[in-house]
């Protein structure tokens, strides 16, 4: 029997934003929200472990009231319990304050064996919140897991894939992992479960509920980073025509490849120290 907590987040469905280079306004189509796609893989991993070992899956999210939608969605996939951390005071959180808020929610849950997060969110792309939670709770973690094997007396068995090197690891429970899109194929939402779970409650915890044993590091005030400004990226939309002898063109291309760092440069006698 394992108690698994999955951290999920509601994100904008599209990140096809463009910025008007003159006014600096963001041009964004629609404002539909979905569950962060990476979280679906985390949820599937948790539900699969529950089906194999028995236990419960709790999902937890921080967000405004409408984030309840992603908890309902998690119920439809197979989650047993949903917690929403929602409070005006949580607003404006950066990754540190978000990690702290989620970790306080998980603390309040008590007995947790395993925490699973998606590798990153599609609206932030930082991959920082999962490892941050692990540190705040004093747990070992493994990030960017591509294969989850099993839970046994040694703990959770996973594979670390470094491309040219594959390692088999075990993490003592309780622990935290973040998972990539390679870890599984998330199941579809079940209509039968949608019907069965439509009356299930979603617990809403506010600041007072989770600040009992910790400082007030929530929201904007608990966030060390500040977005100073946003601006459009420099487009490289030039279309240059290079003409000349083959020799000249070759030289010019080689120089460009070096300048843009597509070839290793500089002396780096790394491996050969004697």
């Amino acid at each position: 029997m394992v108690h698994i907590v999955v951290c999920i987040k509601q994100v904008p469905e599209s990140r096809d934003v463009e910025m008007d280079p003159v006014t600096g306004s963001l041009l964004r189509e629609g404002a539909a929200s979905v569950m962060n796609p990476f979280d679906l893989y985390g949820l599937e991993a948790a539900i699969a472990l529950k089906e194999h070992h028995g236990g419960t899956v709790t999902v937890i999210t921080m967000g405004p009231p409408q984030a309840e939608d992603v908890i309902r969605e998690a119920y439809m996939m197979g989650a047993d319990r949903g917690i929403m951390l929602s409070d005006r005071e949580f607003a404006g959180a950066d990754t540190l304050a978000t990690s702290y808020t989620l970790s306080q929610g998980i603390r309040r849950l008590g007995d947790v064996d395993l925490i699973i997060c998606g590798l990153q969110t599609t609206d932030g792309d930082t991959a920082q919140v999962g490892p941050g939670i692990a540190e705040l709770l004093g747990l070992p973690h493994e990030a960017a897991v591509q294969t989850v094997h099993k839970v046994d007396e040694a703990g959770l068995w996973v594979q670390r894939d470094m491309g040219d090197m594959v390692m088999e690891l075990s993490l003592k429970l309780p622990c935290l992992i973040t998972v990539t899109r390679q870890v599984n194929q998330p199941r579809l939402l079940s209509f039968r479960r949608k019907m069965a779970t439509k009356d299930w409650p979603v617990e809403v915890w506010n600041r007072a509920d989770i600040s009992a044993d910790g400082p007030d590091y929530f929201g904007l005030d608990g966030s060390p980073t500040q977005v100073e400004r946003m601006f459009p990226p420099e487009p490289h939309d030039q279309h240059e025509r290079w003409e000349g002898t083959s020799r000249d063109l070759s030289e010019r291309l080689q120089k460009w490849l070096l300048d843009e760092k597509f070839v290793e440069q500089g002396a780096a006698p790394w491996k050969s120290e004697s």
Binding site: L26, V227, F231, P233
Partner: peptide, 8 residues
């Protein structure tokens, strides 16, 4: 699509 300038 957008660049963000961030300070600490």
């Amino acid at each position: 699509n957008v660049m963000a300038q961030i300070i600490t």
